[in-house]
Design a binder for these strands. Structure first.
Lengths: 205, 205, 205, 205
DNA sequence: AGCTAATCGAGACGGTACGTCACGTCTTAAT
DNA sequence: ATTAAGACGTGACGTACCGTCTCGATTAGCT
């Protein structure tokens, strides 16, 4: 993470000196995870992380450039149990289930960090890009399978750009998540998909 | 600003002492506006504002609790020249023009502050609420006129909740604005409105 | 107070306009007196005085240049009930009684302000001079009567400078008062006078 | 300084991390010394000290709770070249020389800080105590040697409490120093000792 | 009776220093 | 070489008090 993968050569004589402690990395990530449950990203300090992890500040800054990227790594590490995407045979149903699942996640204790990553990204373009590539794109790659299945089955119009379609489906939810001007629940998901798909699906004619 | 309008009594004898200097307020707001053109909200400091405004820090903190609300007041003060909403006779056209205008604003030097307000709101719920009430709601109230015209003319289905419809129209744009995963221009606006309205408009038959 | 006595002309036609309110002056002085009972001179603020006195800050600064001089006026106003000096017929006894009385005063709630005046004087030479002239000199003028009686009665050597003698008698007490390195009570007064007078008094021979 | 000496264990393995920079401490103390030559203790600001020392404010506040204690440390550091006490064989002569020396010091550029320490102590009892213990007591311990020599040689009465005697000798000088009502020089020292010792010394008979 | 001027309460204002906080870097001794 | 401990410079924070100022209201002698 945040580091270059240690490259190729497998025999690779170890460098001199003490080796990087994977325990340190784990301690930092899990400390960060714990802190994120209690406080917002902005409120968490690098000092708090290292203290809770029983690790020195130099160690943290040796492996990560700043605490946002630590938090991102911690966040991603907790997503490995990756929910499979639904496959009901109907694109509308699939996206409805998916949207519900995503809403549940984003409003969960862990998922609410998402909003804070987007927020941090507004004043740190590099971070925003990393976040986009490592989180958003991964999610979109998964959901694109659902999209393609819909297109192949003739449920989704093939003249609609997928990115546009995806934004139509998930954009309103993101907007509500960030602006908080309206509620977010299963009912909303259903209604939203209903209307959106009226614009996306092929006419049955 | 930041203060409640002093309510009813119109003759309203002035309070005893020295009156609040409107020059100070103006200086602070315009200094903030200038700084926002050059730096992000996060980078701007209260010290920089007061120094540029030639005003004491105590004065700033006397009238505003923090610099975010100063920036919001400055932002709103610059919007008084309020764009009238379009009225072409066609709801699709109206929303297309409106979405294009909004995109142009949000990507303009002044409008890019919008993203930063949303960002700040993520770690400051109170600020988010103020921002929502004083900016977002005002915009939505305006656009709701367009929506209602569309409904009355029979262009927009009357069984679609307006809030949901608005989010469907503007949500995708906000999402792209904040996540930056895809471009935002007139072409996008057109395509987005096209698809969204297929779900929103009444069948012609 | 703190103002030059309004000079010569006794009939003196009053100046036009509203006259200085003696209630204001009294309110300020008594508010200051009250505050001095609870807090040290350093801790008291001009704002606190005017608030407690129900008076405006401009009024305070119109008649006094700073709060130290207000406090000095308040202090002096509370000393009008001027303790007569003792007159037992014996200089040693007189000074013993006087020293005891002075110690009692300086360690009383009112008198402990004395220390703070001396303290303020260290960083404000002008104030020190005013304090010296208006308080210390008045006290010394009183005590000088005791001294002179002693000299006349032949109890005190006439070749000792009075100022030096006074400092010998009161200096040690002031020192203890300010440095706090030893106790101050009647016993100390007695012992101190005992020793000091052995140096001051005429040999009985 | 300002920290407790780290007690007993002489081998004392150094603590883990980066050590306190003695350069910082030295820079702070010498900057403070310089500033004290030009300004009064009250006028000196923590900002000015750290700026002149090229040190951060956090560092100063890490090691000292306030600037008074910094100044005290700086003051004491400049006294290490400790004047030996006189030893002429005569207590009167010894104390006369000592009083002259002390007067010279207290009226010197460095020594005039003494008055300001006493002044600060009046509104900060804790500081007064530290000042007393670390400065006054040290001086008194030194001078007590002179006193004891005098007692042993039979020059000073053995029924006079030493603290009382000391105050009789030095109190008047302190009084004049702080109140400024009379001059302080060698002539004064001589006269004062003359009179004081008449009360302190054993009758020759 | 009005005019005019000094005074008053209220409190806004510019200024200066405060002491705290978090950041990210650096130093040291131990592993 | 990497670690834990933790000192350090930087820079912003929000608060406090100072002494000045601007208001409109009040008061009283003078015309």
């Amino acid at each position: 993470m945040a580091k270059v993968a240690s490259s190729i050569a497998p025999p690779e004589s170890k460098p001199r000196g003490r080796q990087r402690s994977s325990e340190c990395e784990a301690a930092i990530l899990s400390a960060t995870t714990e802190l994120l449950k209690k406080k917002s990203l902005r409120e968490i300090t690098a000092d708090a992380i290292v203290q809770r992890a029983g690790v020195s500040k130099a160690t943290l800054y040796k492996w990560w450039p700043n605490k946002n990227l630590v938090a991102l790594d911690a966040f991603l590490a907790n997503m490995r149990t990756n929910v499979g995407i639904p496959n009901t045979g109907s694109a509308v149903e699939d996206f409805k289930l998916e949207l519900e699942a995503v809403i549940r996640f984003y409003t969960s204790p862990t998922g609410k960090t998402f909003r804070q990553f987007v927020a941090e990204g507004q004043s740190d373009p590099e971070f925003l890009e990393v976040f986009r590539e490592r989180f958003l794109r991964a999610r979109r790659d998964e959901t694109s399978i659902m999209w393609e299945r819909g297109v192949e089955r003739g449920e989704i119009r093939d003249d609609v750009d997928m990115d546009l379609g995806m934004d139509l489906i998930f954009g309103p939810m993101i907007y509500r998540l960030l602006a908080g001007h309206a509620s977010l629940d299963d009912a909303h998901a259903e209604a939203m998909i209903e209307v959106a798909f009226r614009g996306l699906q092929k006419k049955p004619q």
